[in-house]
Amino acid sequence: MSNVLSWNCRGLGSIPAVNALRRVVINEKPQLVFLQETKLHSYEMERVKKRLNFRGMFVVDCVGDGRRRKGGVCLLWREDWDITILSFSTNHIDSIVNAEGGMTWRFTGIYGFPETENKAKTGALLKTLHNRESMPWLCGGDFNLMLWSVEKQGGGDFRFEEAELFREACDHCELYDLNYVGHPFTWTNNQGGDHNLQERLDRFLANSQWQTKFGHSYVTHLEKRRSDHLPILLSIRTKLPQSGKKRNKRLFRFEEMWTREEECGEVIAANWRKGGDAAVNVGRIASDLREWSMAKFGDFAKEMRMLKEQMGK
């Protein structure tokens, strides 16, 4: 399994900010990282790259100096991945990924235009980047746009015209939202009470070719760090080919203790939102619940057997 991390880090000019990013990288072990709003120049990002122990990097410098700095995007990758940059701007990095195992696909990191008057430019950028080639295509980042009204909580009225621009661009590019596990919003204004505003601005999108190739992948909204944006992590999984040797099928058992964890419901909901045949959904849910349980609790069945053996001695 490989991981892709996207995070609007809101500046990496301080040691605590870099340490926060480093903790995420150590915990999640991503092979590819797309950062937005680094507020750094390339020579400054070089120090961050060394601190994070990445081999490859491509940087689009921030604009301005001192406290007036804004923007800046960066793509980082591990030694077992080869990245070819196709195009870039202050709002995107487009690339071809050659991952281990001979997997080749396209990744486009997006930093959406934050200004209200420029929101339409994000949709126009996506349309410009779209082509009719059948290559698997993944997009990720802070789009600064939402698709649906449920992706906003608090604040003023939902801007349906902006959402329609985003949906129209996604339809044109044949990109589909990859649903997630975790907190439903990725950005907050950090205010309390009635003044609190939360929105889902960060996401991964993929075309049908990418989803067919990596159909068991899933997105996790990670816990909040220093930024007002959550880091989001895409775990890329392919269905492994079955060997010629016949193996006994493992019977799936739903564990009662899972119901005490909120994440259990999120795993089920994220899979069900993908749509499709009910039997396929149930099979996918069972597979993902097994993996989530192993990560959350470890192999408790094995531990129980070991304890019983010890008690029998």
Rank of each mutant, 00 (worst) to 15 (best):
N196H: 14
K119W: 02
G13C: 11
I96F: 00
A99Q: 02
N19H: 12
E100H: 11
V280K: 11
L86A: 10
E115D: 12
G156V: 03
E46I: 05
T220I: 09
C62F: 07
G101N: 10
G215K: 07
D61Y: 02
E223I: 05
D142K: 01
S87V: 05
L197E: 09
L289C: 06
G71D: 03
V24I: 15
P136K: 02
D288N: 15
S243T: 14
S293T: 08
T220A: 10
R47E: 14
M146C: 11
S208R: 15
N189C: 08
K213G: 03
L205G: 00
G112Q: 03
T122I: 02
A301G: 11
R247C: 12
E256V: 15
E133H: 10
K39H: 12
G298I: 08
R159S: 11
Q31P: 02
G154S: 08
R23S: 14
G66F: 03
G72A: 08
L125W: 06
A169F: 09
W77F: 06
W292K: 04
C170F: 05
G182I: 01
G13S: 08
V63A: 09
G141D: 08
K224H: 10
L75R: 01
G312E: 15
Q198N: 09
E164Q: 14
S149P: 10
T90W: 03
Y218S: 12
L145G: 00
M257F: 14
C173K: 03
K245G: 07
V282S: 04
S217G: 04
I83F: 03
V25I: 14
D177A: 00
S134D: 14
G283L: 07
Y43Q: 13
S95M: 00
I93P: 04
D65K: 14
W77S: 04
E79R: 11
V33E: 05
I93S: 07
A279C: 10
G182N: 06
H195E: 15
F107V: 01
R305L: 13
R69Y: 04
V73D: 04
T84P: 07
R106E: 03
K119R: 14
Q191W: 02
A301S: 13
